[in-house]
Amino acid sequence: MQNYLEFNFKISPLQPWNEILMAELIEIGFDSFTEEIDGILGYIQTDLFHEDQLKALPVFENENVKIEYSYEEMPNINWNEEWEKNFSPINIDDKVLIRAEFHESVPGMHEIIIQPKMSFGTGHHPTTHLMIQQMMDIDFREKKVLDMGCGTSVLAIYAKQQGAGETKAIDIDEWSVENSKENAVRNNVELDIEQGTAENLGNENFDIILANINRNILISDIPAYVSVLNKGGKLLLSGLCFFDVDDILEVCKECGLQLEKQLQREEWVSLLLVKP
């Protein structure tokens, strides 16, 4: 078993900064969280932790929130049991259910079966909900699809289930790639899964690009997405808080994209854009 560090983050005010902090912690290797009354507990493999990366997170520089933390080394734990105890199914508008194999099936709902392991932090729930909610209104039939920062590949899987053609899923983390391959098999869909970043895109072109990542990566990579998006293609973004929207839309406008639909859930936002 891997040795882990447990971090106790005290956050004031708690909302929406607990979700924002979790999203940023995932980017530096944290892989599970427990929500507390006054903050969160976060877990990271001991050999992956670098305190300079933690202190450099943008949320620590935001004057609207105060975050204090302490940490200690954890005893060996069966992490599969831990996430099974903490992972709950995600119900999107009583139409789509994202669940693990050990959860009960719900008659009448479209189901996506995943084995989330450590690649499904609680901070992703609102944005996953928003992405699926937007995707329910998109015609995926025979479309070529890209899922950037795929994580569990739940979005790529749903696109395939909705009739998408060739579908590529890319994530920077090796564990996400392996988890995505397992989840594709569970759902009987075929995905082209790669480890990498937007630099992997090359000269391929896509009809629909899904990117549920975070503000900084999106701002950096939107021009790359647009360069491989077909005319009339759709770009669906999330991993954004409401106060990120103006900055994201400015980049999108510079790249020639037009906003088609915006949804918000709690503090989180998704944007559906089209390339004219």
Rank of each mutant, 00 (worst) to 15 (best):
E142F: 10
G123H: 04
A23I: 08
I114S: 07
I132Q: 02
M22D: 07
H103P: 07
K66Q: 13
H129E: 10
E61M: 12
N62G: 03
I114D: 07
S105W: 00
I98D: 03
I28N: 03
L48S: 12
T128E: 01
I114V: 15
E101C: 02
Y69E: 08
L21E: 05
M74P: 01
I92Y: 03
E35M: 05
T127H: 07
I26G: 03
D47V: 07
H124K: 10
P58M: 08
H110G: 00
F60Y: 07
E19N: 13
A56E: 09
N76W: 11
D94A: 13
T46I: 13
I132E: 03
N86E: 10
K66Y: 06
E104Y: 07
E27I: 00
T128W: 02
Y69T: 05
Q45M: 07
Q115D: 15
H125M: 11
W83S: 12
E72N: 08
I112V: 15
G123A: 04
G39D: 03
E24S: 03
N62H: 14
T122I: 15
E35L: 12
S88L: 15
T128P: 00
E24M: 04
E81Q: 15
Q53M: 06
I28G: 01
I132H: 03
L130T: 07
I67P: 02
I113Y: 11
I77R: 14
F140L: 06
E101K: 14
E68F: 11
K117P: 00
P107R: 10
L41Y: 13
E82G: 01
H110K: 14
N86V: 02
H125D: 09
I98R: 02
M118G: 15
P126S: 05
I44H: 04
D93W: 06
E104D: 15
N62C: 09
I98V: 15
D94R: 13
H125S: 09
F140A: 01
L97A: 04
V106W: 06
K66F: 12
I112P: 07
T34H: 11
S105K: 14
Y69K: 04
I90N: 03
E24H: 03
Q133H: 14
F102N: 11
I26Q: 06
W79Q: 12
M118N: 12
L41T: 05
E111D: 08
R99Y: 09
V59H: 02
Y71G: 02
E82M: 12
S105Y: 01
N91P: 00
G108H: 02
I77K: 12
I44R: 06
G29K: 06
E24Q: 15
N64K: 14
E82K: 13
G29D: 09
K85G: 06
P126T: 08
E81K: 14
E36V: 05
V59D: 06
A100D: 05
D94Q: 15
S70Y: 00
K144G: 01
S105M: 07
V65W: 05
E101Y: 09
L57F: 09
N64P: 00
V65A: 08
H124F: 06
I44K: 08
V65L: 09
Q133K: 15
M22R: 00
S88T: 14
